[in-house]
Nucleic acid binder design. Structure first.
Ligand SMILES: [Mn+2]
Ligand SMILES: [Mn+2]
Ligand SMILES: [Zn+2]
Ligand SMILES: [Zn+2]
Lengths: 165, 165
DNA sequence: AACCAGATGATAATTATTATCACCTAGGTG
DNA sequence: CACCTAGGTGATAATAATTATCATCTGGTT
């Protein structure tokens, strides 16, 4: 088995661990531990959807009705800066974020934009050795697989099939 | 040698071939062959920069001073639709396009956003066998390596180094 | 308790992209 | 080779995401 989807169940414990370390990491990075930041990282870690800023905004708003959308954007960028989150996907619309910093890759449905994590140990092995690439110093990498999910494939099949008279 | 940059010289002949087939491909796709489309695909194939819509716009304007920016956006999307171009990069700002449809991957400088093509035959071999991935039907894939180019690495080193008194 | 660098909220500005729509033209048709 | 028409284009407005601004607030330190 070359490629394999990542099991969703692993997220719980991972999120708990990350959250417990978050305050310490902020301080290490010289960042204040604010309720907004906590709420945002919590929402991000709690989601496997690779959410956009507006989805995080909606989630966080429940507990923090006064939070500003600008704060959500800023904070997500900040989280990326300090290595607590990363941006994801090439199917270019709005930015999608990912709280999972364990190196992994993605399948994206080109139709509905659903994203699932995947692991490709053999690819990681290939990349592990590379720290230089011509004039470039390698920092990281990610593979994105463009695909069609079950639902969208079904819908497309329906649309294509001639309507029965 | 696992990963290898793609030689820039190959682009010339490739572009010429693609351009010569372009009209036929448009017709096959039911698209009119307009001077605007020709100018846009030509500009795209002529560039190794993975340009944005505005750069294509600027290039095309020289010969077609009346062309509209909206047409450039529309046409680039259309080219992607019919498989004559593709979008590129995750470092999320504006869309970058690529006329090179030979399967390949990219290194992106996280600082200046310069993009270079790379080939990873072993990765392609790994992916070639995969047409299904759980509930997903694989359509394509691309690896993006985040890196720092020589110039930006140098600048960063300067900035980091304490100024001599 | 007092201080202040940095964080936030509210809002405006910017920027990329898409939608609209009147006019135009590529590429059939007779 | 004159029409015809579906689809393409230019001009412009609308939308949507992100970023900038700035007055106010607060976490963390003294
Ligand atoms: Mn992920
Ligand atoms: Mn390329
Ligand atoms: Zn889907
Ligand atoms: Zn650079």
């Amino acid at each position: 088995m070359e490629l394999q989807l990542v099991n969703e169940r692993r997220r719980g414990p991972y999120a708990a661990k990350r959250l417990s370390e978050f305050a310490a990491r902020c301080r290490r990075g010289g960042l204040a531990v604010t309720p907004q930041r906590l709420a945002i990282i919590k929402a991000l870690l709690g989601s496997g959807e690779h959410p956009r800023a507006d989805a995080i905004f909606a989630a966080v708003r429940i507990q923090h009705p006064h939070i500003s959308l600008a704060t959500v954007h800023r904070t997500l960028e900040t989280l990326c800066d300090i290595g607590e989150a990363r941006k994801v996907t090439t199917l270019h619309d709005s930015a999608r974020y990912d709280g999972n910093m364990i190196p992994h890759h993605h399948v994206v449905c080109v139709k509905c934009r659903r994203i699932r994590d995947i692991e490709i140990p053999r690819l990681d092995r290939i990349l592990a050795g590379q720290s230089e690439l011509g004039e470039f110093t390698v920092l990281g990498s990610s593979l994105e697989i463009q695909a069609l999910c079950e639902d969208c494939a079904a819908k497309r099949a329906n649309r294509t099939r001639k309507p029965r008279r």
